[in-house]
Amino acid sequence: MRTYKSLSIAQYFLSELQEKQWTGTIHSTFARTINIIDGSGTLYTIATAELDDAPNTIRVADFFYDQLQIPLNTPVFVQHDQLIIEDVAAIEIDEVEKWKYPEIFFPSKKAYQELERRIQKVDQWLGQIDSKGGYLLNHTQTTAYEKMMHTMLRKETGHLLNYLKEKQLFQAMTQLNRVIGLGPGLTPSGDDFLVGLALIFTTTDYPYHSLKQWLINCRQELKKRTNVISFSTLDWAIKGEARERLGVFLNELFYGEDETLLKEKMLQVLAIGSTSGGDILSGMLAGVEFTLEKQR
């Protein structure tokens, strides 16, 4: 059984490992991530070094290069400052760098004009990008199914935002059921859009505090209607946390002065998954534009 060096770990995850007899089992394996689930149904992730930090995630050097064969349901536990995957690997956690998602502050009203200008710039760049699905569908060389799904996504999330704009929160909660799980893939486009929207509503100093509580109230219903991997990402967004590159992009969008850097950070978001990055980005932009419109 080989020992591996961890590079960084989400602060909350490390606290869980250090403060109690933490145990879990292998839930799912992919080319660059391995998911572990504990007895409460919470998901944790081992990620390749090339990925960015994220909630409940530990990044490990060399682990994925060894192409380990790890059966599902293999026990995982902590022993002697190591995260042990039974009979397969030991991951050192005693001298790991701790990571925490940064606190994101929504801009004040005096900064709205510059924020609108940056939003317009991002929209312009997105119009020049060839995307194959989800919210950023390029309508050339696409299938009838992709066009239909794109139309449905735009329609259903449009209804959701209209309900929120009119403060019809019960109707908005019902409308969520038409967005969550909408679209193909492990993390459907509708779920990813909601991740982006949640990251706006949960920013510090966000002007409409009731929307954060509305998301919290919707949590259990959302959990019922999608898979555990997709819900885990959405649940962290409801708590105001996400992958590092999403927070970096939001800070650049809110306060950056360098257009080249803003575009670079946007492209890093778009690189997430096949369409997930574009779908999350669409949710973030929709959330910001929704907020600015209500403030006019």
Rank of each mutant, 00 (worst) to 15 (best):
V179I: 05
Q175G: 04
H139G: 01
G196D: 07
I58L: 10
L164K: 07
Q79Y: 12
Y44L: 04
F201M: 15
S15H: 12
E221G: 12
S40E: 11
E114V: 00
G256M: 05
I85D: 02
F231M: 14
T174L: 15
K263C: 06
E86S: 13
W22G: 06
P75W: 14
H209R: 12
Q69H: 14
A286N: 14
P207Y: 02
A31S: 15
G256C: 06
Q124S: 13
D279C: 09
G278K: 04
E257W: 00
M173E: 14
T48K: 11
T57D: 02
L176S: 04
T203I: 02
K5Q: 12
E166G: 01
L292V: 10
L176R: 04
N162I: 09
G287A: 08
Q79C: 11
T157R: 13
D52R: 14
H209Q: 14
D191S: 09
P188T: 08
A90R: 13
H159Y: 11
F13H: 06
Q21P: 01
Q220M: 10
L68C: 07
T25F: 05
F77A: 09
Q220T: 09
M148G: 00
P184Y: 14
G134S: 03
Y145H: 11
L211Y: 12
S131P: 00
Q69Y: 12
K147D: 11
R219K: 15
T142F: 07
G256A: 09
L215E: 03
E146H: 12
S6I: 02
Q67V: 09
I58H: 01
Q213N: 11
T140M: 06
R225C: 07
E156A: 08
L281T: 07
T33R: 13
W22V: 09
T204V: 11
D66H: 15
M284G: 01
H159E: 11
S28C: 05
F77L: 14
D191I: 06
V269D: 12
T260F: 10
G247N: 02
R225M: 12
E289F: 00
A90F: 05
F63K: 05
L281M: 15
I229H: 10
A90G: 14
G190W: 04
I37D: 06
T204G: 00
S8L: 02
T151M: 08
P55I: 00
L292W: 08
D38I: 04
S274R: 15
E146F: 07
L292E: 04
K167P: 00
I46V: 15
Q124H: 13
D62F: 14
G183S: 08
Q18W: 03
Q141R: 08
E92W: 01
I91G: 01
T151E: 11
V228Y: 03
G240L: 03
D279T: 09
E259N: 11
H27C: 05
A286F: 11
E293L: 13
K167F: 10
Q79H: 14
R2M: 13
F63V: 07
A90D: 02
L194C: 05
L153W: 02
S274E: 15
S15I: 07
L153C: 03
A198F: 05
I280T: 11
Y208L: 12
I36N: 02
L270M: 11
G277V: 04
K110M: 02
V88Y: 08
N35Y: 14
M284D: 00
G134Y: 02
Q213K: 13
I85P: 01
V195L: 08
T187M: 06
R296M: 14
K224F: 09
Y4H: 08
P107I: 01
T275R: 04
A111I: 02
Y4S: 05
K239A: 12
I36G: 05
K109G: 00
